[in-house]
Computed example of a mutant assay.
Amino acid sequence: MPKISAPTVAEHRAEQIRAILDAAHDLMKEGGALPAMGQVAARAGLARPSIYQYFPSRNDLLIALTEDMTPRWLEKVTAEMDAHSAPADRILIYLEANIRMVAAGDHAAGDALAAEPGVRELFDEHVRALHARLLEPLVHELERLGVTEATPVAMLLNAQLHAATGMLSRGTPADEVVRLLRDVVEPYLRTR
């Protein structure tokens, strides 16, 4: 029987899963793509066959990474928003925080999912559900601002955010992307 490094088997399993997810996320930030399972296992301090006890395939690992990333992403974004009280300011910070996190490489799992051949089509519904969760703070602040069709407007702002992050991948500095997006969005928010 293998040794466990925690008081219970469940805690050991949770620690191993956390180590695998952290290792995969770090490798993706470094390399920009989902690494081979052997690389993830080595970074997590596991034998290559052991990783398959937790994630039977790269796709399973990628799904787990995106599911793990979403609450942490939301926590970071909302923590930055919480430093402000006015809905317009909170919306601008929401957009800026997302751009800065993408620029820092925090969106590596999402980028890997989009780049993995055939995976996007398989998990399109899963990705839509995750993106809907990420839009919740934006929808809430638009409602506070008095926007009657908050969800469609949030989707339009998200499309602008997506275009802005595309500029990052083409080499535009994050500060410039933030400035340009503010130039487009802020006049609308300030007239509400």
Rank of each mutant, 00 (worst) to 15 (best):
R13F: 05
S50Q: 15
I20M: 06
M1K: 13
G31L: 00
D89Q: 12
R192Q: 14
G38Y: 00
A86F: 05
P7I: 01
P2I: 05
A112L: 00
A174G: 07
A132P: 03
E96Q: 10
R58L: 01
A129T: 09
D111V: 08
D183K: 14
P87Q: 02
H140L: 09
I91Q: 05
P7H: 00
E15P: 01
Y94P: 10
L95V: 05
A10L: 07
Y52S: 12
M155E: 15
A47K: 15
A154P: 06
Y54V: 05
I63W: 07
P187R: 01
V139D: 09
E125T: 14
E116T: 13
I51P: 01
A164W: 02
R182K: 08
L113W: 13
I51W: 00
V9S: 05
N98R: 12
V177G: 09
Q39L: 15
A104I: 06
E116K: 08
V9M: 10
V153F: 11
A19C: 04
G118E: 00
F55D: 05
P35D: 02
Y52F: 09
L34S: 09
E125P: 13
T70H: 15
R192L: 15
N59M: 11
F123V: 14
R133S: 03
T172E: 15
P56S: 11
D22P: 10
L135S: 13
I17C: 02
L134Y: 14
I51H: 02
F55L: 01
V119P: 13
K29W: 10
L157E: 10
G171T: 03
L181N: 11
H25E: 14
A163C: 07
N59F: 10
R182F: 11
R48V: 12
A115V: 05
I20A: 07
A114N: 09
L156R: 14
A19L: 12
R182Y: 15
P137W: 04
S85H: 14
V40Q: 03
E80V: 13
A86I: 03
V177H: 08
D22R: 14
P173M: 06
A103H: 09
L156T: 14
H107R: 13
A14M: 11
M167L: 10
A174L: 00
Q39V: 12
D60L: 05
L156K: 15
E30K: 08
E125F: 15
K3N: 11
F123N: 04
L74K: 08
I91E: 01
V127K: 03
Y94E: 08
A150R: 01
A42D: 10
V40P: 02
A83C: 13
H12S: 11
A97W: 06
T165D: 07
R144W: 06
A79F: 12
A24L: 06
Y188D: 10
R13W: 01
N158G: 13
E96N: 04
P117I: 08
P35I: 02
P152T: 01
L157A: 10
A79Q: 07
L62C: 05
N158H: 14
L189R: 00
V178Y: 09
M1L: 11
A88L: 11
L61I: 03
V177M: 06
Q160K: 13
A97S: 11
G38Q: 05
L34T: 12
L157C: 13
A115S: 09
R133N: 05
P7W: 00
V40T: 02
E96F: 07
I51T: 11
D82K: 15
H25I: 13
H131A: 15
A6F: 07
L65K: 04
L130M: 08
A24P: 03
